[in-house]
Design a protein around this nucleic acid. Structure first.
Lengths: 120, 120
DNA sequence: TCTTTGTATTGCTTGTTGTAATACATACTA
DNA sequence: TAGTATGTATTACAACAAGCAATACAAAGA
C-alpha cells in the first residue's frame, strides 16, 4: 500500500499515516491480518524519522486497528471493535463540513454521492 | 447565538468559534447581515482573551463569511462566495470519517441520515 | 471629549511536532 | 552461539502554534 504525505498540510505526519492506513482498511486495500511495513522500512521509504512512524503505529494500536508484535511486526487486526456508533468528535466534524458545503452552494445530493463513493 | 467551547478538545479555541459561527450561518441561526457580538463582549462572555476572538473573526473575514467594520462591528455577509465545490481538505476529512464509521459497523444509511439532518 | 469598534504589537508560557542518537527485550535464523 | 530484525523506550533538542496579557492605535459616533 502506498502512503502519501502532504508536506504542506497542517495535519501532523503521524496522523496522516494513521488516517491513510484506516482508510486503507476500510477500502479493503489492507486486508485483515495483513502485514504492515516495519517502522524502519516505512520511515526509510518516506524519508522521515522512525519515531514518527512508531507514533502512528502506537496510535493505531491504541485505537484497536492494528496489533504490534516484537517478532512479527505490525498487522491489521482480524477482529476490530465494532461499536457501531459515530463518536461526537466526528459528528461535529461532519456537521462542519456539511455546513461549509451547504453555504458554498454544494447540492445535498453531491455530498451523499461522496458517501456512497467512500463507503463503498 | 450561544457559542460553546470544549476545553478538552484539541481543536483550538479560535477554530471552534469559527466553526460554530459557520454552522450557525448554515443552519439559519445567523441570518445574512446579522450583527455578531463584539470581540470584547464575546471574550468577556466566554472568559477568554480578546485576541483569540479577534483571530476567529479575522479567519471568518478572510474566508468571506463575515464583514468587519471599525464602526459597526462584525456582520454576516449578505453575499457569500459560492464556489459550489468541496475543497480537497474537506473531502479527505469526509473520507476519513466515513472510513472510521464503516469499520466500526455504522450502516451507510445512518451516515446519510446525518447528512440530511445537518444539511436541512 | 468620551466611548466603542476592530486591529496591531510585543512578550511570555505552554504544549506539540519532528528529528536525532542510543539502547533494550524479544524472537527468528544462519 | 552469534547475528539480525522487530517494536519500543529514553533523552535531548529545535521549531512552531496556541493562548494570554498588556497596551496602544485608527475610525466613527454620541
Amino acid at each position: 500500500m502506498v502512503i502519501r504525505i502532504d508536506e504542506l498540510s497542517d495535519v501532523p505526519i503521524y496522523q496522516q499515516i494513521r488516517n491513510q492506513i484506516v482508510m486503507g482498511i476500510s477500502g479493503g486495500e489492507l486486508a485483515a491480518g495483513e502485514q504492515l511495513p516495519t517502522v524502519r522500512a516505512l520511515a526509510l521509504e518516506m524519508g522521515i524519522n522512525i519515531m514518527t512512524v512508531s507514533k502512528a503505529y502506537q496510535l493505531l494500536k491504541t485505537e484497536g486497528y492494528i496489533m504490534t508484535d516484537r517478532k512479527n511486526g505490525a498487522r491489521v487486526r482480524t477482529e476490530i471493535n465494532k461499536q457501531a456508533t459515530i463518536p461526537d468528535l466526528n459528528k461535529t466534524e461532519l456537521r462542519r463540513i456539511v455546513s461549509e458545503a451547504r453555504i458554498s452552494g454544494v447540492p445535498k445530493e453531491e455530498i451523499i454521492q461522496l458517501i456512497h463513493e467512500y463507503y463503498g
